[in-house]
Design a protein around this nucleic acid. Structure first.
Lengths: 329, 329
DNA sequence: CTTACCATTGCAAAGGTTTGCGAAACTGTT
DNA sequence: AACAGTTTCGCAAACCTTTGCAATGGTAAG
C-alpha cells in the first residue's frame, strides 16, 4: 500500500499541496466546495499526516518520555497508566524507557530522549544515579523535567512525591495510639532519599514516646523482607507490630508471617505505606497509608502541563496520604 | 539552548553539511583529520541527530507500538517490560497505548500509530473488539502486527500465546492425578477466545473421568471471583479443589479462602494458571502452570523481528507451560 | 607539461508539512 | 469599462538529514 501524502491528494484533485493542507485544517481561505472534495478523498484514502514531517517543520514535538527503573510492579505501572491516560487525552505520545536501575542505561535513555526532541520528561531515578549533569541539559533546553518517586536532592528540580513525611508520621502515630510497644520497622534501600525521609519522620514521631522499643531494619527487596521477618518472629517473644515502608516489603513480611502462622492482629499488628492494591488481598485486610501511583501520575502530568505553559520555578509537590483502615492494626 | 544541527557544526568548522554528516558516520571518504575535528565539536556541543529528519528522509521508522487494555497488572506490565528491554537493546523506540478495553479508543490508538508511521505493532485486543478492519490496514501496509493474549480468531494474523490448551490440560491432569472429586473451576470472561480454549481443554480432560463433579463458573474480575468462592465454600460440604484460570481469579479465590479460614491444601486444594509472581506470596505457595508475560514478550519481539526481515505467513506461536509445584495441591 | 588517478569535499535533491505572500479570478461599484 | 475589493488558490522556503554525483586539489606517471 502506497504512502498517502498531501502531494498525492493534491495530484488527484488537481490542487496545490498548500490548498490541500489548508482544506484539511479548515482554513477560512479555502472554499467549502474544495474543503468537501479534499476531506472526502482524504477520508477514503485513509490519509494520516506524517508526524515526522510535522515535527520537523514545527521544531517541536508532542512527545513526552518517561524513564523508570522497571515497568513491572504495581506502583510504577499504575503511575504509568495514569500518565498514559493523560497523554492520550491531550494528544501527546508517550515513550516509555526502563533504566533497570543502571545509570549507564539511564544515560543512554536520555540520549534517546534528546534525539527524539521530546517536549517533556518524567523520571524516576535509578537507585544509584549520582551525576545529574545529563539531566541538567534538559533544564538548559527548557524541556520540562518532572521527577517522581526517586527524586534528586536540592531545590533545582521539579518533583512530585507522595507526602512521605506525613505518611510515615501518621503510621507512627497510629502505632502509638494503639499502644504498641515493640515495633519492627522495615525500610528500603538506605541510600534512597525516599527512605531517608520516611525513616526520619517515623523515628522523630516514635521517639517522643519513651516506652516504645523500635527495631529498625533495611531491606531492599521481597526476599530480604521475608528473611528479616523470619528472624524476628522465630523467637518466642516478638514484636507486637510491624511497619512496612513499601508494598514490596509488605508482601515479604506477610509471606513470612503466614509461613509462621502468626495471626494478625492478635499476635502482631501490621501497617504499611502502600499503593492500595496488595493490602486488600490479605485477611484481615492490611491497614495502610495510601501512596497512590495513579494519583501521583495524574499530579505529575498536571505539573508537566503547567511547566510547558510558562516559565515557573521548580517546585516540590505532594499528594495527600489518607489512612485506609483494614483489620490488621 | 539552541538546537544543534549538522548545519550549525558545518558553519563553525567551515565545512559542508554533507561532510559533517559523513564524518560523524565514519565514512571512508572523509580524512581522519576532519573526522577528528567534527567528532570533537559534535561531542562538545552535545549534538544529537534529529530523529524526525532521519525518519522523514528514510521514509521509515525504528518505532514500535504496543496497545494493551491497561498497563497496570502483572501480566501486562511484565510483557511490556520484556518488549521494552528488547526494543531498547535493538534501538527501537516503543510507544505504549492503553485501550481501556474500549474499541473506540482502540481505533484512535491505531490512528496514532499510523500517524507515527510505526514499523510494527503489538496488540492485545480489547475485550469487545469486533471489527478488525482497522487492523487489516496494517497488514495491507506491510506493517507487522503481532497479537498476544487476547487475539483475534482466524489464521490471518500473527499470534503469540501461552500454550493455553496444554496448560489447562496439565492442570486438569494434575487434579485427576491427585484424585480430586469435587472441583470448582473458575474461568474468565466467556467471550474471550482465551477463556474458550482453556475451558474446552480443561473440560475435555476432566470429562474422561466419570467420578468427578466439576462446577464451572465464570468471573471476570477479582470481586466476582471472591464472591463465587464464598458462595461455594460457605456450605458445609464444599469442593476439594479449586482451579483458577488466571492470576486475577486466583487472588480473588485466595482472599475468600483466607477469610473463611479454609486451610490449604488440607481442606481444599488450589491450582492456577499464573504469571508466577502471586503464587509465591501465599503460604503454602500455590502450585501453578506458568503463563509468563515476560517470556511471552520476548517471544513476541522475536516474532516481530522475523516478520520485519522477510515476508512470512501469519503464524500462531506458543510458549511452553512448565508446572511449578507449590504446596497447595 | 600533460594526463590520469586518487583523496577529499561540496552541491543539490528528496522526504512531507506548514505558512507568508503574491497571483489570479471574480464580485460589485462607479 | 475601469476600478477596487474579495475570495480562492499556488509558489516557495524552511525544518534536518542522507546520498549520488560532480568538483576540486594534489600526486605520480608518461
Amino acid at each position: 500500500m502506497e504512502n498517502i501524502t498531501l502531494k498525492r491528494i493534491s495530484e488527484v484533485l488537481n490542487l496545490s499541496i498548500s490548498t490541500v493542507s489548508r482544506a484539511l485544517k479548515n482554513h477560512p481561505d479555502i472554499s467549502v466546495a474544495t474543503k468537501k472534495r479534499v476531506n472526502e478523498l482524504a477520508q477514503s484514502l485513509d490519509y494520516e499526516p506524517n508526524i515526522n514531517a510535522i515535527n520537523l517543520r514545527a521544531k517541536k514535538n508532542r512527545v513526552l518520555a518517561l524513564i523508570v527503573p522497571t515497568i513491572a510492579g504495581f506502583f510504577y505501572s499504575s503511575f504509568i497508566s495514569a500518565v498514559e491516560e493523560e497523554c492520550r487525552a491531550n494528544d501527546y505520545t508517550l515513550i516509555i524507557l526502563q533504566s533497570g536501575n543502571d545509570p549507564e542505561t539511564e544515560k543512554n535513555n536520555l540520549s534517546v530522549c534528546r534525539q527524539n526532541r521530546i517536549s517533556g520528561l518524567f523520571v524516576c531515578l535509578s537507585t544509584n544515579t549520582e551525576n545529574m549533569a545529563a539531566f541538567d541539559k534538559f533544564n538548559d533546553a527548557d524541556t520540562p523535567l518532572i521527577f517522581f518517586d526517586k527524586v534528586p536532592e536540592g531545590d533545582a528540580y521539579n518533583k512530585v512525591c507522595v507526602a512521605d513525611e506525613e505518611a510515615a508520621r501518621i503510621a507512627a502515630a497510629l502505632l502509638i495510639e494503639k499502644k504498641k510497644v515493640n515495633i519492627l520497622a522495615l525500610f528500603g534501600n538506605k541510600n534512597l532519599s525516599i527512605t531517608k525521609i520516611r525513616l526520619k519522620s517515623f523515628t522523630d514521631t516514635i521517639a517522643q514516646q519513651k516506652n516504645i522499643i523500635t527495631n529498625f531494619e533495611h531491606c531492599s527487596n521481597f526476599t530480604e523482607a521475608k528473611n528479616i521477618t523470619i528472624q524476628y518472629f522465630s523467637k518466642k517473644t516478638f514484636p507486637d507490630a510491624v511497619f512496612c515502608m513499601s508494598d514490596e516489603i509488605l508482601i515479604g513480611v506477610m509471606k513470612s508471617l503466614q509461613d509462621l502462622k502468626i495471626s494478625i492482629p492478635e499476635k502482631t499488628a501490621v501497617i504499611a505505606l502502600s499503593d492500595g492494591f496488595w493490602p486488600q488481598l490479605y485477611s484481615p485486610e492490611i491497614t495502610y497509608i495510601e501512596t497512590s501511583g495513579y494519583k501521583l501520575g495524574k499530579l505529575a502530568f498536571i505539573r508537566m502541563m503547567n511547566c510547558m505553559e510558562g516559565k515557573t520555578k521548580p517546585v516540590e509537590m505532594f499528594i495527600n496520604s489518607p489512612v485506609i483502615k483494614g483489620g490488621s492494626l
